[in-house]
Amino acid sequence: MRRAFGTPIGDYLPAFGLALVTALYLAAAYRYPPDAREIPADVAWTMLGLIALDLVSRTHTGLGRALMRWFNPAADREDAEAKPHYTAGRQIIAVLWLMGFAAALNLIGILYAVPLYVLAFTRLRGGRTWRASIAVACGTTLFLWLLFAFLLRLELYPGALIGGR
C-alpha cells in the first residue's frame, strides 16, 4: 500500500473525510444569522484544529509520534499489536449488504424487504441450504409481523414503490 510520511494513505482517509464534512458544515453555518451560528461555528472551528492535530499524529514523523504519545497513547500501543486485516473489498461488500437492505426497506417495504434480505444473506453470503435459509427468513418475518403489526398495531411501511410516501 502507498504511504505518506511512513503511514499507509488509507489511515488518513477518516480524518480527511471528517475535515471535508466539517468545512462544508462551517460554510453552511455562515449562511445563518449570528445567534443561530454562534455555537455551531465555534465547534466546527475547534474541530478543524483537532482534525489537523489528528492528521499530524498519524504520521510517523517526530512531531507525529510526540502528538500520539501525548494525546492517543492507547491508539499508539494498539497500532503495534497485531490487528486483524480485512481487505477493502470484503468491508465494502458488508456495507453494501446493509445499504441494499435499507434501500429495499424504503422502496419495497418491510414485509417484502425482510424475507428477501434474510433469504439472500443466509443463502448467498452464508452458504446455508435453501431449506435453512427459507426457515430463517420466514421465522424472522413472522416474528417482526407478530410483534409490530399484530401486537403493536403498527402499520408496517409498504415501500415507496407500493404506495408509501
Partner: peptide, 14 residues
Amino acid sequence: AEILVPVITCIALV
C-alpha cells in the same frame, strides 16, 4: 454470523 447478522439487522432497522 450468517444467521445472526441478517436477523439482528432486520430487528434493528425495523
